[in-house]
């Protein structure tokens, strides 16, 4: 489902990275562990196509994303990859529900309010639907970010350090939630983190 082959990246006048090959099955689980400065976020951006590798290629669902450009790449990412960033950000002027409807709207998919409300219900956020994101607590914001990542039924969910700021109990809770939602959606789940606590939780892990 996800395959990287010999990808390298060099920042303009900055450090260069050479990443080990990564592969993940359909509906698979993969933990990518790495210390700070090893280029974890860079790798996540390369996989999602937010960055294009200097050399090598990334294949998602048999599509070489390194060959896609511009709007086609934006649309492909929007349809097939759900990203959960380290800190949850939203379009502040839109309600929680409208933020959830952004991914289908931006990818030109069908906009289903009922589906969005259902996901919010599943994540215990139904009463927040019509509030502005600034009113959410950190935990709620993270759950809304998860909801947003799965609404388009992506094949791949990418999460950047989802547990780094949490205590043990909450960290396990979030991982359980992520796995549960990935299963419901039928998506593969790739987590990029330095959090060693998660090592025991995942069968497959790659160190970078």
């Amino acid at each position: 489902m996800l395959q990287t082959k010999n990808i390298q990246f060099k920042y303009d006048g900055g450090p260069s990275f050479h990443f080990p090959d990564i592969s993940c099955e359909e509906k698979g689980r993969l933990l990518i562990l790495g210390e700070s400065g090893k280029g974890k976020t860079t790798l996540l951006h390369l996989i999602s196509g937010l960055l294009q590798p200097t050399s090598g290629e990334v294949t998602i669902k048999n599509q070489n994303t390194s060959a896609l450009k511009g709007a086609a790449l934006d649309r492909f990412r929007g349809k097939h990859v759900g990203i959960i960033f380290q800190t949850a950000h939203f379009v502040q002027s839109l309600t929680v529900l409208d933020n959830l409807l952004l991914p289908p709207f931006l990818t030109g998919s069908k906009i289903e309010r009922s589906k969005a409300l259902e996901i919010l219900q599943r994540l215990n956020l139904k009463e927040k639907a019509f509030q502005l994101p600034s009113k959410l607590s950190v935990g709620e914001a993270q759950r809304v970010a998860i909801a947003r990542a799965i609404i388009n039924n992506p094949s791949l969910i990418l999460a950047d350090e989802p547990t780094s700021a949490l205590d043990d109990k909450n960290a396990i809770e979030v991982i359980r939630l992520l796995e549960e939602q990935a299963s419901t959606t039928g998506a593969a789940l790739v987590i990029v983190t330095h959090d060693q606590r998660l090592k025991d939780h995942f069968k497959d892990h790659v160190n970078i």
Partner: peptide, 14 residues
Amino acid sequence: YELALMRSMGGTRR
């Protein structure tokens, strides 16, 4: 950040 976020969710430059 919001605008970049929209790109990450499938929004294009246009």
